[in-house]
Computed example of a mutant assay.
Amino acid sequence: MNTLKKTYTFSSIVEDFKQLTKVGLAISVVFSSLAGYLLGVDAENGVDFKVLGLLALGGYFMVGASNAYNQIIERDLDALMDRTKNRPIPAGRMSVTTAFIIATIFTVLGIGILYTINPQTAMFGAISIFLYTCVYTPLKTKTPLAVFVGALPGAIPFMLGWVAATDDFGIEPGTLFMIQFFWQFPHFWAIGWFLFEDYKKGGFFMLPTGKKNKATALQIIMYTIWLILISVFPVTGLTGELKLSIVAAILVFISGIGLLYYGIRLYKNMDNKSAKALMLASVGYITLIQILFVVDKFLR
């Protein structure tokens, strides 16, 4: 590891802070949480913008803490990979102690803020940090099953919003959880595909078969189909207060077919270009269906 630099600029400190807490990822997580909140809130009583703000802030701290702990644990492996070697800890711009202090403060703030919403929201936030840091991160160099474990904390944000709005866990947040759970497999396996060589340098096992082969691509297709089915399931009326109109269900289904197309294209082409296209399509998909769910609720 490089020695710590002696001089810093304000912009470099901000940039290192953003890299440590992965601001881009945090924003997407907060977006999912807010969408879940809007789905769970009683439309007649209106949106509580104070709770909305607390959820956004607590969600950011929760994700920031998880990412900071992750980068502390993986600092030596990050130094081996082109994608991560310039992160603040392996590059020597930030000490482990500083990162740990930030991670700990974020943990306390995140759980504390979520607790002010309701205890269940705080509990799920704490579970997310624990699973990501203490289970998923160590498993990444051991087995491809790490992706399945990582999908658990990754699926919490969407349902977290519902729990924040209702202080209740049932079929509705469970369905939101399953949507984001299944979504992560085509998303992260696509990333694992086009970054396969770089991940290999760090000893990470991300693809289900350990290889960029037809079997991995086929599993991506299978999980995408499961994702489509669970995403349109609320149209059946069997998911309690989480509902979906026929028109919205058709739009969600069409979006899913679009994502499936990119999975099939990867199966046919077996190249990094198709994997990148699938990854981008997956980001567009989850964002679009969350918007569709929310808009459909307030238009019904």
Rank of each mutant, 00 (worst) to 15 (best):
M1A: 13
M1F: 07
M1R: 11
N2T: 06
N2R: 11
L4N: 12
T7D: 14
F10Y: 14
V14L: 15
F17S: 15
K18Y: 11
L20W: 02
T21H: 03
T21I: 10
L25M: 15
S28P: 01
S32Y: 03
Y37G: 13
L38T: 05
G40L: 13
V41K: 10
V41Y: 06
D42L: 03
D42Y: 06
G53K: 03
L55A: 01
L57A: 14
Y60L: 13
F61Y: 14
V63A: 14
S66L: 04
I72C: 12
D76M: 04
L77D: 01
L77W: 06
A79M: 08
A79V: 08
L80I: 08
M81P: 12
R83E: 09
T84R: 03
T84P: 04
N86K: 10
R87C: 03
P88C: 00
I89G: 07
P90Q: 03
G92M: 00
G92S: 05
R93P: 13
S95Y: 00
S95N: 09
F100D: 12
I101D: 08
I102N: 10
I105P: 08
V108L: 15
L109Q: 14
L109F: 08
G110W: 12
G112L: 09
I113D: 12
T116F: 13
I117P: 11
I117M: 12
Q120S: 15
A122T: 11
F124D: 14
I127Y: 05
S128W: 05
Y132L: 11
Y132V: 03
T133R: 09
C134W: 01
V135K: 07
V135F: 02
T137D: 10
P138D: 00
L139W: 07
K142N: 07
V147M: 07
P153I: 11
A155Y: 02
M159W: 02
W162A: 15
V163S: 03
T166P: 03
D167L: 06
G170P: 07
G170W: 05
G174K: 06
T175F: 09
L176K: 02
F177T: 13
I179G: 02
F182Q: 14
W183V: 07
W189G: 10
A190G: 04
L195K: 12
F196Q: 10
F196N: 14
E197R: 05
D198Q: 06
Y199P: 13
Y199W: 04
K200R: 10
F204V: 06
F205D: 13
M206K: 11
L207S: 09
L207W: 04
P208K: 01
T209F: 02
T209Q: 09
G210K: 02
K211E: 15
A215D: 15
I221H: 08
T224R: 04
L229W: 02
I230G: 12
I230Y: 04
V232G: 08
F233D: 04
V235I: 10
T239A: 07
K243L: 14
L244R: 04
A249F: 08
I250F: 08
L251T: 06
V252D: 04
S255R: 01
S255W: 00
G258V: 00
I264H: 01
L266W: 00
L266V: 06
L266C: 00
K268D: 04
N269Q: 14
S274G: 06
A275Q: 02
A277L: 12
L278Q: 05
L280S: 11
V283L: 14
Y285P: 02
I286P: 12
T287D: 03
L288G: 04
Q290R: 04
L292P: 00
V295R: 10
